[in-house]
């Protein structure tokens, strides 16, 4: 290996291939920025800080995700959010937030290398994930704009339906990513 590359996805050891038969497509959207945001959602300074930097208020409805320009904000808990930025934007957004929160009880932590995003798309996307995810993924119950932290197989994930209805976005932890992709690819054999 040369020293030319500077960054690597956690899925560097995974081979992605074209889906066979009716198996869903599984692909990575690497190198997004991920910021863990903590704050009290009833604190005016906190609300104002988020609004100033991201142009929207952090969602307070549980299990929802909103678009904020180039960024997306996922509800993670009553005082916790995940901000997903375009690749390379995380440091700027973090610094802007830290500046906006001066004196406000809050936390902005860069976790960009700790997470990665997977898209599972195709007719059997929900069925593939349902192999071992206890969440009800039926479109009556789980629509674009909703998100959920739950589990997939024996690891955690954040899942949300893609806006175009083609499938799901999964945000998974780096150290579990290789396991989860091998697991998903193995589960997909059932649809080939």
């Amino acid at each position: 290996m040369s020293d030319l590359f500077q960054q690597e996805s956690p899925l560097v050891q995974i081979e992605f291939s074209e889906p066979k038969g009716a198996a869903p497509r599984i692909e990575e959207k690497p190198f997004n920025g991920y910021l863990n945001l903590r704050g009290r959602s009833d604190h005016t300074g906190f609300i104002a800080g988020v609004l100033k930097v991201l142009g929207v208020e952090a969602p307070t409805e549980a299990n929802t995700v909103i678009d904020a320009g180039d960024n997306r904000i996922y509800w993670f808990g009553p005082d916790e959010w995940l901000i997903v930025t375009k690749p390379g934007q995380q440091t700027r957004v973090r610094n802007d937030l830290l500046a906006a929160f001066a004196g406000v009880f809050s936390s902005v932590v860069d976790n960009s290398s700790g997470l990665t995003t997977i898209h599972v798309t195709g007719d059997n996307a929900a069925a593939l994930i349902a192999t071992d995810c206890p969440l009800d993924l039926h479109p009556r119950e789980f629509k674009p704009g909703q998100c959920a932290q739950t589990r997939l197989a024996k690891a955690g994930m954040t899942i949300s339906p893609l806006a175009d209805g083609s499938g799901f976005e999964l945000i998974i932890r780096r150290s579990f990513a290789d396991y989860l992709l091998l697991w998903l690819q193995d589960a997909a054999i059932a649809f080939e």
Binding site: Q13, F176, Y179
Partner: peptide, 18 residues
């Protein structure tokens, strides 16, 4: 499918695993 060295239990890898 949760069988064998790879899938019975999560295998967590560091960035330098390869």
């Amino acid at each position: 499918q949760n069988l064998g060295d790879r899938l019975f239990d999560p295998v967590r890898k560091t960035a330098m695993h390869a």
